[in-house]
Design a protein around this nucleic acid. Structure first.
Lengths: 151, 151
DNA sequence: GATGATATGTTATAATATAACACTTCATCC
DNA sequence: GGATGAAGTGTTATATTATAACATATCATC
């Protein structure tokens, strides 16, 4: 038994991953860069290169509909075995507060694989992104309507 | 019976929609613009505005992972009733030849709604994009490997 | 210590998307 | 008919996101 997974990130990669984790919400490459200038990063390409590697390692996901990035919320942590395919990530993105949750649904996963098979399609990656209002923002909006809307 | 649905597109909107339909594969805004300079379009914003309206009408979809657009492959054609929610579009995108198919799967749709409900999430839009190799390109690649790979 | 694979830093530029403003078109209402 | 308002247009400028190209550095391995 040895330290297996969080190994061998380079300085820039670690910086970018930490910044993503610290942020909580998805962040664009230029926002990450701005936050990391103090640590010595100077150019967009440095961030993009780190992101590319982190994505390849499965530690980071790109949110296509936002042109932004999030740290993967799964383990990548212990000596744990590769989990039994929980299916592709489903991102639920609040358009109001930007809060983003990463879910999985094996049924969706299975269904997608089935679709691909039916089409003779060799699936590489899936991107599933749901946009709307999170519970918190929905509640707040309801409140505001209540307070404001009947003069 | 009257002409009901394809009504009231403006000139620019019609041009952009036709260009998209003619293209077959997804096209970026700048590619569309280049194809429409002959028809008098000059600036990106003209294309973006038309696309925005066409998306609102459901005639065009944006492929987030490609920063590109396709004409919706559904009807929008007859006096037909609004179909009984076939679920969100699932785009299957070939990374080799760019061929893109628009599918739907009611099970995925139902599952997504269920996920959203569970989270208390007010769903506005879904983006589901599958990337990989289409059947044709998979076949061709297999052929090439066969022909090339054992010296 | 040569080799190769990967990462780095730097500069420049490409590709995608929006802001702001002045003007037009067209339906509607009085 | 003219006022009004909503939507569209054309134009210029600019913002935002992403890559190309090149020289150098680091590090394991043979």
């Amino acid at each position: 038994m040895t330290a297996a997974p969080p190994k061998s990130l380079t300085r820039n990669q670690s910086l970018v991953l930490s910044a993503l984790r610290a942020g909580g919400t998805p962040q664009g490459a230029y926002a990450l860069l701005d936050g990391l200038r103090d640590q010595g990063l100077r150019a967009p390409v440095q961030v993009y290169r780190a992101l590319e590697r982190l994505q390849a390692l499965g530690l980071v996901h790109r949110l296509e509909s936002l042109n932004a990035f999030v740290a993967c919320s799964h383990d990548h942590g212990g000596t744990e075995d590769a989990e039994a395919t929980p299916g592709p990530a489903v991102f639920v993105i609040c358009e109001h507060c930007a809060a983003t949750r990463e879910l999985t649904d094996p049924i969706i996963g299975g269904r997608i694989e089935r679709l691909a098979r039916t089409e003779g399609f060799g699936l590489h990656t899936s991107s599933i992104e749901l946009r709307g209002l999170c519970a918190v923002c929905t509640a707040r909006e309801a409140e505001e309507t209540e307070t404001t809307a009947d003069p």
